[in-house]
Design a protein around this nucleic acid. Structure first.
Lengths: 189, 189
DNA sequence: GTCTATAGGTGGATAGAC
DNA sequence: GTCTATCCACCTATAGAC
C-alpha cells in the first residue's frame, strides 16, 4: 500500500533527480515547477529559499541511505554479498546517465551552505563507517580476504565507486562502471 | 624567461581556477572580470559566449595534460615513479581545496555543449591510455606487479584518484587523498 | 495550499565610443 | 582591445487574491 506522495515529497523527488543530472547550480525553481506541474511560488511555500531546499535534499538523502544500508544488513549475512548490494546503490543513478547526489554536492561544495556541507560530510562518514565495519567483520569471519587497514580500504572502495560514476557518465558507458566495480569485488576475495 | 601572459590567457587561467572551485554553472563573466581586473565586455571579445569559453578551457586543459605526461615520460624511467608523478597531477588541485577541471566538467556534463563533452571524453581517454601503457610496460620490465588486465587497472586507478579528490574536498582533509593514493601505489608493488 | 502578479537583481550578450 | 551603456531573458523571492 503506497501512500500518495504529498507536494513537498514530489518537489524533493524531482529536485533530486534534477540535481543528479545538472548539479545544484544547473537548475532553477521553474525547472522543478514544470516537472511537478505546479508554479514556482508553490515551491517557495515549502522551501522558502533554494538553500532550504538544498538542506532538505541532503537530510532526506542521508536518511534514505541509512535505510538502504540497514536493509542490506538485515537481509544479508554474507559480507561479500553486502558489498555487491552496496555497489548497486551506486550503480542505480549511472543507469540513468547520472551521478549520485553525494558526488554532485561534493563538486558543488563551495557554493553550498555550511549546513549542506556538513550534511554531505555526515553522509560520506556514514558510507565509510558502514564499509569499514563490513570489511572488518568480513575479514574476521572469512567472507572477505584483504590486507591493510579496513579504514583505508573503505576510503578506496568509496572513492572508486564515485570515480566510476564519473567515468561512466563521461563516456555514457555503463560498462566502465561495472569494470571498476567488478575489480573491487575481486580484490576482496 | 617567462613570457608575459596576454589577456586571453589570463582569462582562461582565472576561469579554470574558478571552475575548479565552483563548477561551470557556479560563476558568471563578472566573477572572471573582477579577478582579472577587466570588464565583462572584454571577456566577450575573446570568448563571445560562455560555450566558447568552455570549449577553449577543455582544449587547453587537455593540451596541458598531454604536456605533463610527456614530461613524466621524458624525465622518468621507472614506471612506479611515473605513477607517483601522475598522482601529483591529481593532488595539486586538492591542495587548494579544489577538484580538477575534468571532474568538475564530468559532473556538469549534462549542461555542457557537445564539443566540451567530446573534449572531456578525449581527456579521460588520454588519461586511460597513458595509464594502461605504463601499467603494461611496468609489468613487463618488472617495475610493477599486479594481476588482471591493464585496461581495467587503468580505469580503477583513474576512478580512485577522482573519487579521492571528492572525498578530500568534502572533508577538507588532504590526508584522505593521500591515504587512497598511497594504497594505489602499494597495490602495484 | 496554490495561484497570479510582480519586484528587484543578475545572467549572458551586443552596440558603439574611444 | 577595452571601455560604457544597455537590452532582454531569467532568476530568486514576496505580496496578496482565491
Amino acid at each position: 500500500m503506497t501512500k500518495t506522495k504529498n507536494t513537498a515529497e514530489l518537489i524533493l523527488d524531482t529536485a533530486q533527480s534534477i540535481v543528479q543530472d545538472v548539479g545544484f547550480n544547473g537548475f532553477s525553481y521553474s525547472h522543478i515547477a514544470e516537472k511537478v506541474g505546479i508554479r514556482t511560488a508553490s515551491i517557495h511555500y515549502y522551501f522558502p529559499s533554494k538553500e532550504d531546499l538544498g538542506e532538505a535534499l541532503i537530510v532526506r538523502y542521508r536518511k534514505s541511505f541509512i535505510s538502504a544500508i540497514d536493509q542490506i544488513d538485515s537481509e544479508t549475512q554474507n559480507n561479500l554479498e553486502k558489498f555487491r548490494k552496496f555497489i548497486l546503490i551506486y550503480k542505480a543513478p549511472v543507469q540513468e546517465c547520472c551521478t549520485c547526489m553525494g558526488v554532485m554536492f561534493a563538486t558543488d561544495l563551495a557554493t553550498l551552505s555550511s549546513k549542506v556541507q556538513e550534511g554531505l560530510a555526515h553522509l560520506f562518514t556514514a558510507n565509510l563507517e558502514w564499509l569499514e565495519r563490513v570489511l572488518d567483520q568480513g575479514r574476521r569471519n572469512g567472507h572477505l580476504n584483504f590486507e591493510g587497514a579496513a579504514n583505508v580500504r573503505a576510503h578506496q572502495f568509496l572513492a572508486s565507486l564515485q570515480g566510476a560514476q564519473l567515468l561512466a557518465k563521461s563516456f555514457r558507458d555503463l560498462s566502465r562502471f561495472d569494470m571498476i566495480a567488478d575489480g573491487l569485488i575481486s580484490a576482496l576475495t
